[in-house]
Design a protein around this nucleic acid. Sequence first.
DNA 1: TATCGTGACATTGTATCCAATTCTGGATAC
DNA 2: GTATCCAGAATTGGATACAATGTCACGATA
Lengths: 226, 226
Amino acid sequence: MTVPAQKHGNASLAIAEALRHAILRGDYTPGERIIQDQLSAKYGGSRIPVREALRTLESEGLVRLVANTGAWVASLTASECSEVYQTRERIEPLLLRFNAPEITHDYIAELDELAKKMENARDVEEFLRLDREFHLGMYQRVPTYLLGELGTRLWNTTQPYRRAYTMLVDTNNLGIVHSEHHMLVTALRDGDLDLAEQVVALHIRRTRLHLERHPEVFTIKTDNTH
Amino acid sequence: MTVPAQKHGNASLAIAEALRHAILRGDYTPGERIIQDQLSAKYGGSRIPVREALRTLESEGLVRLVANTGAWVASLTASECSEVYQTRERIEPLLLRFNAPEITHDYIAELDELAKKMENARDVEEFLRLDREFHLGMYQRVPTYLLGELGTRLWNTTQPYRRAYTMLVDTNNLGIVHSEHHMLVTALRDGDLDLAEQVVALHIRRTRLHLERHPEVFTIKTDNTH
DNA sequence: TATCGTGACATTGTATCCAATTCTGGATAC
DNA sequence: GTATCCAGAATTGGATACAATGTCACGATA
């Protein structure tokens, strides 16, 4: 895949976007080494924009850079992941509150639709896509200075483990998850923002506690952890 | 000031550090344009490490980059600053909880000392330095994956406005601030972590409400805002 | 007078080359 | 068999040069 980079001044951006997508898609495993030359060959260009793209992704927590040594796809330990989830537990309710003015009746209907589709998701990838759309979409109704980015970052860095966990429990054993989604939709429909905040926090908290009981999810990374 | 950068692979780091310090120190005003050539001349080197340093600082929220156009020292509007404070209100109590195990009796004594020194601070700069040490020091007892960095970032991006606000109200009109600091020390000494969390949140909340009543603090930026 | 090109200039973005550092694998010593 | 050390290769970091882009003053035109 060669990124055209038609215009000058967008190569690093385009590479960052492509690599971010590839990582979230699961094309790379956590802990995998990234070689600048390989990326510049793949996307067509010199190593300079690749280096800038790696810096960008590092700041998003998706890549880990070590001076004079190299870059790796970020990997989390179980306790680091737990920390991210605890952070989400505090941030996402606030994000919901910021976005509340634009969570209209029409949009709540869309959320309801998404929640139903998730129940019938055929495979893990479809479930993950819908889950992401359900949660992150809700947080992007209103433009924010940093909360939106922060929420996305927290979501992105935990993506490989969410995938591994979802595959572990299988998509039809997610009853509680679906209940919580419907509870959230109901709370929003009732205009009960305090309850909605609590449901979001509980949803994240319960998932974290589940994850903490499955440390094997965190062994998918390759051994070149550094 | 020329950064030595003796070893290969540290120039961008050194430049980032120097520039970060300069911004926090107030050498640049929010909204000020940053020219890559000027920085590379100042710190001695080519523009490549300067560019990487700018990317790093952008990810910290201290610099704003626009493709093909340039870089500016970050500036906040009143509502953006309010958002940062609301985020701090949720994050810092969690940070306190993470660090609690290492907030020993000896360290609480240090905090008490800092709180007292702050009451006798001669000028604004000294007050700001002590205030930073009091709050951020408390959050760096235990190494974290991202919470520590996040707390520092939220603190740093609001630094120019904290300075402007402190100059506005003068250092001897900060009675409530000092009371809150002592309340926090007391709560920690009593081992009442829930109360400590609440004091931190209230401390931030009250400051935010004060700031919101002083929009003139946000007019210090130069006009080339973009 | 206000608005819209238009050009030169300033500044940023990228490629190429070279230097510095780290990594690898095998030879040697114990 | 294991550890240590030392080339050589692989890889990253940085400097210079040039291309692409944006800025801004200036003048033409309505």
